[in-house]
Each structure stands twice: as C-alpha cells, then as structure tokens.
Nucleic acid binder design. Structure first.
Length: 274
DNA sequence: CGGACAACCTGGTTGC
DNA sequence: TGCAACCAGGTTGTCC
C-alpha cells in the first residue's frame, strides 16, 4: 500500500501529536505483526518509553523512543497507524494498541497482515535486512542523475523492475514507478542500460517530481490508505496512467495499456512511452 | 544476473 | 443470487 509519499505523510501527521507522549502499555491482539523481539519482550521494552520523534526511511516509518530504541514499521499493503481518542470504535483487523499517557491510543491495523514492526537499537538499523540494504533516498541531495546513471549502467533488467528494487532507490512502489516512467516518456520494459544521458536526466527529474507532488497531495488513496489521523490522500485524482487502462493518455490521447511484469500490473501509454 | 512464480493474507470487483 | 476467478499500494525466497 503505502509508498514513499504515503509513509512521509503518515510520519508528518503523527509528528504533530505523538512526540512527548509516554507509552504506558501495549496491548497485543495479534502477535504475528511483531517481527522482533518476541511480543512479551516487545511490550516490556516499549512500556514506559517516551516518543521522541517520527521519521521515514524508504517505506519504513521510524519512531524514536527514549532509552535509545527505534520502533520500525513497514505497512506493506494494508497496514495503518492511526492516533485516536480513547472512545473511538476499534477498526476491524486492529492488531496492536499503544496506550498513551494522555489517554489517547496509537493503533496498528492491517487487513492482510503483511505489515511488520521491529524494535531496534539505533545502531542495528544498518544490520536490519530490509532497512540496512536500502538504496539512496530519492529526494535527498545524494540522488543525482550521476547516481542514477551509475545504478542503470550494465543492468540488463527492465526499467520498471529496477525502479521497484529498494536497494537501488528507496521508496518507489508500483504507483509512483509507473507515473515516473510515463512522465519521463520511457517504456517500462526498456532495458535499464540502454538509456541515453538525456533519458537518465528525464527519469531522475520525473521521479523527484512525482514524489514531491504525491507528498503535496498527501498520498494516493486507492482503497485503504489514510494518514495518521485517518484522512485519505488526493493524489489518486492526479494519476496519469496507474489503473487507467483504456482511458486516454493525458499527453497524447492514446488509450493507456496494461502489461504484467513479475506478477504485477504496469500501466503505460503506448503512444508516448516507446 | 534476471525473470517467473509462490507464499504470506483478506476482501472487493467482475463475469458467468 | 451464487460462486469462481481475478485483482490489490510489498517483500522474500525458490527455482530455472
């Protein structure tokens, strides 16, 4: 579900209300979502900690806690973190409830139960199998056309597959990869190593542009996604190709096509993505 | 290396 | 109405 702009929006919305609050206790309704440590240890270690701040790395939400701990959350497809008042009815598929000092609650709900939480020491972020192998942040100064050119060089794989590889660029998912390729005028099946310098520049610019616009629109809500206050995003209104099969391309008018790559849909315009 | 596919899950939509 | 098939924002592992 959530890609970089959605996780960024959740982190920002929770940053407005959570920092400074102490977690009094954790109620585990489904321990499956806690990846590490075991749920007993997890609850024991989290209880009594103060929430210091929220940040994001790739599609991971990071919550720093007092006593040098980090709670890392990956929402996968349908995970949601919502800060609620005590009286709100419990959403279906709520798996964890963090009871906070002021009576409010932070709830983790996840219909498909793919999402996971890890409680980590800050130093062990780099050895975490997912977080430690993440590539560059696409909105950071380190993500340059030269970096992208280096990542594409010698790679026979298709552009779309490469953009979804979190070890290359952290945070792109199916929606924003398709939207970036369309804006850059590049076909999803194009072998990565065949791009010209000009095309690499266009792709670099398109990735940054579409992510910035996604953040400005507070993310894309196709179905389940909401921010930390339960509010939907609006970028779904601005999508040019994703899930628009058969509808006219906003640039050239040709019908948007769909292809399947590695079991996942890719939407593109056969007219302007050669 | 790269690609296809299954697995992990529930639920919404579509088509017969 | 019923039911099966297919689809979904992600990641990981296996097999070829």
């Amino acid at each position: 579900m959530p890609e970089l702009p959605e996780v960024e929006t959740i982190a920002k919305s929770l940053s407005a209300s959570l920092p400074g609050l102490v977690i009094e206790k954790v109620e585990v309704l489904n321990s499956q979502v806690i990846a590490a440590p075991g749920s007993g240890e997890f609850c024991r270690l989290v209880a009594g900690r103060k929430i210091l701040g929220l940040s994001r790395r790739g599609k991971y939400l990071l919550m720093s806690l007092s006593g040098d701990l980090v709670l890392a959350v990956h929402l996968r497809m349908t995970g949601r973190l919502i800060h609620t008042g005590p009286g709100e009815p419990l959403a279906r598929h709520t798996h964890l409830i963090f009871f906070l000092q002021n009576g409010t609650q932070l709830r983790y709900a996840d219909t498909r139960r793919f999402g996971r939480l890890w409680l980590l020491a800050p130093g062990s972020l780099s050895t975490h199998p997912g977080i430690g192998s993440l590539g560059v942040e696409p909105l950071s100064p380190q993500f340059t056309p030269a970096y992208l050119a280096g990542a594409l060089a010698g790679r026979r794989t298709r552009l779309k597959s490469l953009l979804l590889d979190q070890r290359v660029v952290a945070g792109l998912g199916n929606i924003y990869a398709d939207e970036a390729l369309h804006r850059a005028g590049l076909h999803p099946l194009r072998p990565a190593c065949t791009l010209t310098g000009e095309e690499v520049e266009a792709l670099h610019a398109a990735i940054r542009e579409v992510l910035r616009e996604g953040i400005a629109a507070r993310g894309t809500t196709v179905r389940d996604y909401t921010d930390g206050r339960g509010q939907a995003g609006t970028f779904q209104e601005k999508l040019r190709v994703y899930r628009r099969q058969g509808q006219p391309c906003p640039r050239c008018g040709k019908p948007i096509a769909r292809l399947v790559l590695g079991g996942r849909s890719s939407y593109f315009c056969p007219g302007c993505q050669r």
